[in-house]
Nucleic acid binder design. Structure first.
Lengths: 229, 229
DNA sequence: ACTGACACGTGATCC
DNA sequence: TGGATCACGTGTCAG
């Protein structure tokens, strides 16, 4: 395939990664600057890549600076390509086309990642501002992702709770206990169990007189839970 | 400069941005697929960019598929280049070299931006977690007033705990769960029970490598419990 | 023998 | 005029 060999003519590519160019394909060594032409008959064992340099013997003067300019342009382009490739981490093959394609997708996913992160940052900032401003109730029975809370009064002074969360949310027990404490609900029984990817928490609590209602208690708990998501 | 004219031979570049190609430089239209060769004498008014297609009249057979393959390769490369350029918003000139250079710097600054945003996100999360821990309100009793903590390693990565407190110390569950969270001990099972005047808490937790020792874990836990007594 | 990938020289075009 | 860029055909190497 001849891949992973970029020319970077004479001056080796400053790219730290691969492009070994080790062993075969020698150094070409065009002697940068002024020797351009004269057919460079030296070192006949070396194999160049492209067309034979002296295809048709030429003694033309004006037409020759053109080939040199074109050479420099090619080298510049390849140097840029080299540096560019070094900037793309997700590059599978050294092939020019592959580098280009990989870079395209890489840029796309980078941009979308930045978008999402920025959106998240905004959300966080807004949420933080709201929690400091809004002191109390905002019903909001809908909780965060994949989180269920069931509340059932047992008798008049106690309630049974069941909170089911995904395991992705770590330290769910601390979160629930904090919420219970903030509402001054004394725990008379509690049980935590990790099953599958879920965390199931059962509890029986003593309820103060002001909260002795299924829905009121549930709303208050959800509100507290939401603040410490 | 002749910039902002990419070939995208025949099939116009699907890139939505610029590349107007408006006016000059026509469509070239190589009739994609099979007409390759025969010198295509039609449409003499059209100006191609490169060398004349029929420089030397050729009737060679095997050498010709090569030129066609090269053509397709060139077209593919230019198409990729075109799509790639569309993915880079900060592209000043349409020049190939400029696109490459701009893309390199663009990728670099995108990556550093992502890094910073992610770091910020982590900081925010940590800060949020701390602010929830900090306001240690609630009135609780003195530290160790008839309080017992037993720790026993179960295997190498888990530990079984038992904390026994007097019922006078309210919200013992929140206190224990906070301590566990502050040490990053994931709770795989926990149980709380009020019996007589005592609160008994049993738990099984996953222990990080740094704390996999009975006494070390117990000391660390006691320290945390004492701070939030 | 065949295919894919490069570099080179060259004609052409634009400013 | 002359520098810069491009597309093309070709020679060559590697798998």
């Amino acid at each position: 395939m001849d891949e992973l060999v970029f020319p970077a003519s004479s001056s080796s590519c400053p790219s730290p990664a691969s492009f070994s160019n080790a062993g075969h394909h020698q150094e070409v060594s065009r002697s940068p600057g002024n020797d351009h032409l004269s057919g460079e008959p030296a070192a006949p064992a070396l194999k160049r890549r492209g067309r034979k340099p002296g295809s048709r013997n030429n003694i033309d003067g004006p037409a020759l600076c053109h080939v040199e300019a074109e050479r420099q342009r090619r080298d510049k382009l390849n140097r840029l390509f080299c540096e560019f490739r070094a900037a793309v981490p997700t590059v599978s093959r050294m092939d020019k086309a592959s580098v280009l394609a990989d870079a395209t997708t890489y840029i796309a996913q980078l941009r979308q990642r930045v978008e999402q992160l920025e959106a998240d940052a905004k959300k966080k900032a807004a949420a933080a501002a709201l929690t400091t401003v809004a002191p109390s109730h905002s019903f909001s029975s809908s909780s965060s992702l994949g989180e269920k809370l069931e509340v059932r009064m047992v008798g008049t002074e106690a309630a049974a709770l069941r909170l089911t969360t995904t395991a992705a949310a770590r330290h769910a027990p601390a979160r629930l206990m904090l919420a219970l404490r903030s509402l001054d609900l004394t725990v008379s029984h509690a049980c935590v169990c990790l099953f599958g990817g879920m965390t199931v928490q059962d509890a029986v609590v003593e309820v103060p007189a002001a909260l002795r209602d299924d829905r009121a208690l549930r709303a208050a708990l959800l509100h507290r839970l939401q603040r410490t998501s």
